[in-house]
Design a protein around this nucleic acid. Structure first.
Lengths: 118, 118
DNA sequence: CAGTATCCATTAAGATACTG
DNA sequence: CAGTATCTTAATGGATACTG
């Protein structure tokens, strides 16, 4: 039974359901953290610790996991510099840049909805 | 020990983190099913069983839970007709209608990304 | 038809300690 | 600095049976 799926969170490898483009997208950038991480990178590269500071509630573990998935899915480029102390930074890939208007709009919607519901 | 939170999935009631508009929006329409359900209603009212047929992989339980949350959050209007057999339908509220361009764009992005990565 | 109720499995998330 | 490793809890999702 087990045969764990190794890497991916949720059902990223399921065939059938992923045929829906919207579901596919939700799998790639959904979840509590991914859009938030991406949006912090909107204005350029950031180091691991900088992202961490910008998202205080995330743990190092979750940040690492999410960054790895985003990288694997081609949304982030990770660069390691051969320095001591080590330096790593992250930046949006072109396909991630295309998402900027989406999270921007979603954020606007959130602000508006928050007021309406309050 | 239970002390269940009643209704909400995830951390909808957390104060601090919800101050971020994007996080707020992700909480309201995030998760595996919500956007998908909403997008099926894009062209008008649908009954419970119709939504179910349009999203074959969702279980009745999950569909019910998600519909209830969307209703509670003001994204769906639920109408019960006094008929036998019972009839209930769901439709988008104005604030949900404002999200149409977002899931539409997200779906387009999904289609494109799927091709690029394949 | 449109759900509820149970019970159970899988995943996401969090705390904390440790390392190259 | 930029992570790993472990362990634990909470959230999410699903199978199945039942009901007004």
């Amino acid at each position: 039974m087990g045969k764990r799926k190794e890497n991916s969170t949720n059902m990223q490898n399921e065939k059938s359901i992923m045929e829906c483009d919207l579901t596919y997208a939700v799998c790639k950038v959904g979840g509590r953290w991914k859009l938030l991480i991406l949006c912090k990178l909107e204005n350029g590269k950031l180091r691991f610790s900088e992202i961490r500071r910008l998202i205080p509630k995330i743990t190092e573990r979750m940040l690492t996991l999410q960054l790895r998935e985003l990288e694997k899915d081609g949304l982030l480029k990770r660069t390691v510099y051969a320095e001591v102390p080590p330096r790593v930074d992250y930046e949006l890939t072109p396909i991630a840049i295309e998402l900027i208007p989406i999270w921007s709009k979603l954020s606007d919607w959130g602000a508006k909805h928050k007021k309406l519901v309050k």
